[in-house]
């Protein structure tokens, strides 16, 4: 059996290929706006800043998210429970600005089953790529206004004093803040998946 192809850094110059955003002679396959005209559920914005080990912002990261729709269904036939009844695809990609900022416009996901069949707390999975990162680091975005966080099986694998790093804070109606710290006392929890 062949071994897998190793990852290499996305490097500093990915933008014209992955996130051209109208600045280059290339079109976006994905954007940071996951909303579709027909999507149902609570529309939310997730925004934040990514920091390195010196507390400096990271202006050349790429963040990708994958999530279920508001009814907890993935737009992938491998989720055999049934597909979304909208054109919501659940995948988004954002570069970061010179100030290290990113954002996503999406819907708050519904609960999906965990490995034990019990519902997980609503969450979004996120891959963090960047210059100086040999491969993506995987985290999860949970929401502070979800009581189900307390019983979430994955959340409970995380030491209690680190859980706050993966819980987005509600800063305004429909707006959540999720900062990412690659290192330091507040290093974001990353998962071995």
């Amino acid at each position: 059996m062949p071994g897998i192809t190793p990852s290499q850094t996305v490097g500093p110059f990915y933008a014209y290929g992955l996130t051209p955003n109208g600045e280059y002679a290339w079109n976006d396959a994905f954007t940071n706006n996951l909303l579709t005209p027909d999507v149902t559920g609570d529309k939310i914005r997730i925004e934040g800043v990514i920091y390195d080990g010196d507390g400096k912002v990271v202006p050349d990261a790429v963040l990708e998210i994958w999530q279920a729709d508001a009814q907890g269904r993935f737009a992938d036939p491998q989720d055999t429970r049934g597909l979304p009844n909208s054109s919501f695809r659940g995948f988004g990609r954002s570069g970061t600005t010179d100030a290290g900022e990113y954002s996503f416009d999406t819907v708050k996901p519904g609960a999906v089953p965990g490995h034990d069949g019990k519902p997980q707390a609503p969450h979004i999975v996120m891959a963090v790529f960047g210059r100086g990162m040999t491969m993506q680091s995987m985290t999860r975005i949970y929401f502070e206004d979800e009581a189900a966080n307390a019983s979430d099986a994955v959340m409970n694998l995380v030491p209690a004093d680190r859980r706050a790093t993966i819980i987005a804070k509600k800063t305004a109606p429909g707006v959540y803040r999720f900062d990412i710290h690659l290192q330091g006392d507040n290093e974001t929890v990353f998962f071995d998946v």
Partner: peptide, 21 residues
């Protein structure tokens, strides 16, 4: 300054990990 340093959390895969766009 960019490689995460703390222990990564090993977790079982769920539908969130085993599906994709």
């Amino acid at each position: 300054k960019r490689a995460p340093q703390k222990q990564r959390i090993l977790m079982p895969h769920t539908l969130s990990e085993t599906t994709g766009p």
